[in-house]
């Protein structure tokens, strides 16, 4: 289990990285970007991924930050997940994102793995894409033509694929202010603590005068990419925030789910069922969360 050979570059600046990626792309090279490498390294070891060139963003220390920009939480792409999990700022500003981060793997993984790396990897079993879909999340990327901002809904394309161009570098993740009144929860089901989830659900919603408003529910681990459970969201909109409605939302979510994945640990039917259970649990947890 040793990686196949590859060439290696570790650009010292973002500009250098973009120029390098552009040049390599022009030359037709098969390039992979490595940040923390916690997802890529096993793929290299198994020779499932065998790039000709590896571009290491590890020197882009300027992208390692977590800060508040006028109420918007901005996390540099190279900030480690553990830094996000430990950050009081993240906990205050984006409690759902903080909770999701604590669910990722184990500390050794979170220490090395970066926030940007996870989003760019777009593993369907990852908590992050689903969380991005229920928060107002934007991705900032820099390419040869400068910087652009990509809303979460346009960022995740399909299995391990984002809308980033090959010569673009994800530089930051921006979370719009999370209103203190807003409720949130994340629930996942894994075989063991720390394993990739067989299924998971992230929710945000408001409860106004006892009624559900602006309900957002997203599932992960069940399809090629994280997915909003819009049928359940619509069903719940304006309904009383009560257990029977959350259960019904779970049933609606499960029923409406297209083609869940199957694997040795969970059949498509079981995954569908889990999404329903987890959606109902997440809604219940969110509704019960003290303001």
């Amino acid at each position: 289990m040793k990686p196949a050979p590859f060439d290696y570059h570790a650009p010292a600046t973002l500009d250098e990285a973009v120029a390098l990626l552009t040049r390599l792309g022009d030359e037709g090279c098969d390039v992979k970007i490595i940040a923390g490498g916690q997802s890529l390294m096993p793929m290299l070891a198994l020779r499932v991924a065998r790039p000709e060139v590896l571009v290491d963003l590890g020197r882009l220390e300027a992208l390692d930050y977590i800060r508040d920009e006028g109420g918007t939480l901005v996390i540099g792409a190279m900030a480690s997940k553990q830094a996000a999990a430990d950050s009081d700022l993240v906990r205050r500003a984006q409690p759902l994102f903080q909770a999701a981060t604590e669910l990722v793997g184990h500390r050794q993984i979170r220490n090395r793995g970066t926030v940007g790396g996870s989003f760019a990897h777009a593993d369907p079993a990852s908590e992050y894409p689903a969380v991005a879909l229920v928060l107002d999340t934007e991705f900032e990327a820099v390419g040869p033509d400068g910087m652009r901002t990509i809303p979460a809904a346009d960022f995740f394309v399909t299995y391990m694929t984002t809308s980033l161009e090959a010569n673009e570098v994800l530089t930051a993740v921006k979370f719009a202010p999370f209103a203190p009144r807003r409720r949130w929860a994340i629930q996942e089901f894994a075989r063991r603590n720390g394993d990739l989830a067989l299924a998971g659900v992230a929710v945000t919603l408001d409860i106004e005068a006892g009624l559900c408003r602006d309900v957002r529910i997203a599932a992960f681990g069940v399809q090629a990419t994280a997915v909003r459970l819009t049928a359940a969201e619509r069903m719940l909109e304006g309904r009383p925030a009560q257990p029977q409605h959350f259960e019904e939302a779970g049933r609606v979510a499960a029923t409406a789910l297209d083609d869940p994945m199957g694997c040795i640990h969970a059949s498509p039917d079981y995954r569908r069922h889990l999404v329903g259970v987890l959606a109902a649990r997440a809604l219940t947890e969110a509704a019960a969360r003290p303001q």
Binding site: M41, D56, Q108, I109, N111, R112
Partner: peptide, 24 residues
């Protein structure tokens, strides 16, 4: 492949799996 943790070392005082890190 990063599951067992036997190769855990500290890099800049933070734990890491040495099998999931390149020497470079």
């Amino acid at each position: 492949h990063g599951i067992c943790g036997a190769c855990t070392v500290l890099i800049d005082d933070r734990s890491a799996r040495a099998c999931l890190t390149l020497a470079v």
